[in-house]
Amino acid sequence: MTAARLRAFCLSFNDAAEEFPFSPETSVFKVAGKLFALSALDARPLTVNLKCEPENAVRLRTEHPEAVAPGYHMNKRHWNTVTVAALPEKTVRELIEDSYDLVVAGLPRAVRLRLDRP
């Protein structure tokens, strides 16, 4: 997955927006104002920080030690840093979608319904 495809996929979700609160090089993808993905899209290797359920975070780190690490500068229990090129694109897409869904699940019901994600 290229940086352009990563960016396009993150922005394909309902109400997804890209912001640059930390630096012009760091893309922060949010839904309803809440972070679900963070990446320096011009970095090599390309990595992305994604939210994850704690038990899945540990499992992913164990199964893919070359590709998944505790979230860099994030809560290590709930966030992973994923090296994009080290995993199949389908897996990266699933992890991004899981991150988005976890963030949406924590939003107020009215917002979830507006996003069509019960």
Rank of each mutant, 00 (worst) to 15 (best):
79 W>I: 14
17 A>T: 15
98 D>G: 12
72 Y>I: 02
102 L>W: 10
47 T>E: 15
51 K>T: 07
41 L>D: 02
78 H>Q: 15
62 T>K: 12
31 V>D: 03
40 A>R: 12
96 I>T: 07
46 L>Q: 00
92 V>N: 04
55 E>A: 10
20 F>L: 14
14 N>T: 14
17 A>S: 15
75 N>A: 10
59 R>I: 04
82 V>C: 01
91 T>A: 13
80 N>W: 09
18 E>Y: 03
45 P>R: 11
72 Y>L: 06
29 F>P: 03
92 V>I: 15
14 N>F: 07
53 E>T: 10
82 V>K: 05
81 T>M: 11
19 E>M: 01
61 R>M: 11
15 D>L: 09
34 K>M: 06
87 L>M: 10
99 S>N: 11
42 D>P: 02
15 D>F: 12
59 R>F: 12
16 A>G: 06
31 V>W: 00
68 V>C: 11
31 V>E: 01
99 S>Y: 08
44 R>K: 00
18 E>V: 05
46 L>D: 02
90 K>L: 03
23 S>Y: 00
18 E>L: 02
67 A>P: 05
101 D>Y: 00
90 K>N: 09
25 E>C: 01
47 T>C: 15
66 E>Y: 02
28 V>E: 02
50 L>Q: 10
100 Y>D: 04
83 T>C: 01
85 A>H: 05
85 A>L: 03
67 A>W: 09
96 I>C: 06
51 K>Y: 11
63 E>S: 11
95 L>M: 15
75 N>G: 11
65 P>A: 06
79 W>G: 06
33 G>Q: 05
60 L>H: 06
36 F>R: 01
24 P>K: 06
74 M>W: 09
39 S>M: 06
100 Y>N: 05
24 P>W: 09
24 P>M: 00
75 N>C: 03
89 E>T: 13
26 T>V: 11
62 T>L: 14
47 T>Y: 00
60 L>N: 04
26 T>M: 10
90 K>H: 11
28 V>R: 04
92 V>D: 05
14 N>S: 15
14 N>L: 07
48 V>I: 13
49 N>Q: 12
69 A>E: 14
77 R>A: 15
70 P>W: 09
53 E>I: 10
71 G>V: 11
19 E>Q: 03
71 G>W: 04
63 E>K: 10
34 K>E: 06
47 T>Q: 14
68 V>Y: 09
40 A>G: 06
89 E>K: 09
30 K>V: 04
77 R>E: 15
58 V>C: 00
81 T>V: 01
85 A>Q: 08
92 V>R: 05
29 F>G: 02
15 D>T: 09
102 L>H: 11
54 P>M: 00
69 A>C: 03
23 S>F: 03
73 H>E: 13
33 G>S: 04
24 P>F: 04
83 T>R: 14
42 D>F: 00
94 E>M: 05
58 V>R: 12
66 E>S: 07
54 P>F: 02
85 A>F: 01
98 D>Q: 15
87 L>G: 08
76 K>W: 08
49 N>H: 05
31 V>A: 01
50 L>K: 09
31 V>I: 09
73 H>S: 13
